[in-house]
Design a protein around this nucleic acid. Structure first.
Lengths: 146, 146
DNA sequence: AGAGCTTGTATGCATTTGCAAACGGATTGG
DNA sequence: CCAATCCGTTTGCAAATGCATACAAGCTCT
């Protein structure tokens, strides 16, 4: 019951391989994996690790990420927001900074959504983004918002 | 320059975890993996599979792809989505909110860069994110919202 | 002083990966 | 006709993953 609903990774690989008109052994050689193992992978008997997947993708000349998505290793759920995805993917900031940015951005979104559904009543949110919630979550006791 | 010089994936995970100020067990619980194994992963004793990596990324609230890149499982350089561009392109926030996010993000970047070039203690900034720098840097008087 | 709680780490064990070798089945050709 | 190759599959087996359990060090109470 754990098996993915559709298009197991193996079928996808085999499809790509047959479409490329190369044999199992050839692909295995090009990918640098053993052909028996590739056979098992294609039939779903074995579940390959990411490294093997990466090598197979290289041998197939397709993008690794396409395979990862097929394998369900990347939640390619629609990026709920480009900003969120970008912040999460950013490696130049620390985890805490990331957390702060995510919190602030989400509070912005929430505030705007509330204002939308309720109607044009901008005077109401006397404290739309309260520092307390942020402080409670993040350790930094900054964010004093006049 | 793009890729931060990181020895192993484990160090990166531990760095992100400690910066997020959560314990090993907490992250393990959030990620759905056992804490002893997570310990071994962080110290490089074990090499986690992609699924575990994915769960860790989820528990760590960072993008899976960032971890895959760190682990060397994705060598194709996909332009790690630019946070600044994403914020500028976002239409669900107001102009002032946008300005706030941009300011904060850039101050983070500047702070990290200063810490990098200057100090040889990247992991031990007693208060890397201090509210004073934010407020002092803020051009507009206060981040008051709509 | 201890009990009680947390933190991270070492150990034993089922399960799995991934490979090398051996196996049947088609096709070709000498 | 039956070697000579191709093809893909099956079969053991070393090595690794990943977990549950048990362990040692640190902190806070009363």
């Amino acid at each position: 019951m754990e098996l993915p609903k559709v298009g197991s990774i193996g079928e996808y690989i085999r499809e790509q391989r047959t479409q490329a008109k190369i044999s199992l052994r050839q692909l295995a050689a090009q990918a640098g994996v053993s052909f028996p193992y590739l056979s098992q992978v294609e039939r779903g008997v074995r579940k390959p690790s990411a490294e093997i997947l990466n090598q197979i993708a290289k041998g197939l000349r397709i993008s690794s990420q396409a395979l990862y998505v097929q394998a369900g290793l990347i939640d390619e759920r629609q990026p709920d927001s480009d900003v969120l995805a970008a912040i999460r993917a950013d490696v130049t900031i620390t985890g805490r900074q990331r957390q702060v940015l995510l919190d602030i951005y989400e509070s912005f979104r929430k505030e705007n959504q509330a204002a939308e559904t309720e109607g044009a009543q901008p005077t109401q949110p006397a404290e739309p983004l309260d520092a307390a919630s942020l402080n409670g979550h993040a350790t930094s006791e900054g964010y004093n918002l006049p």
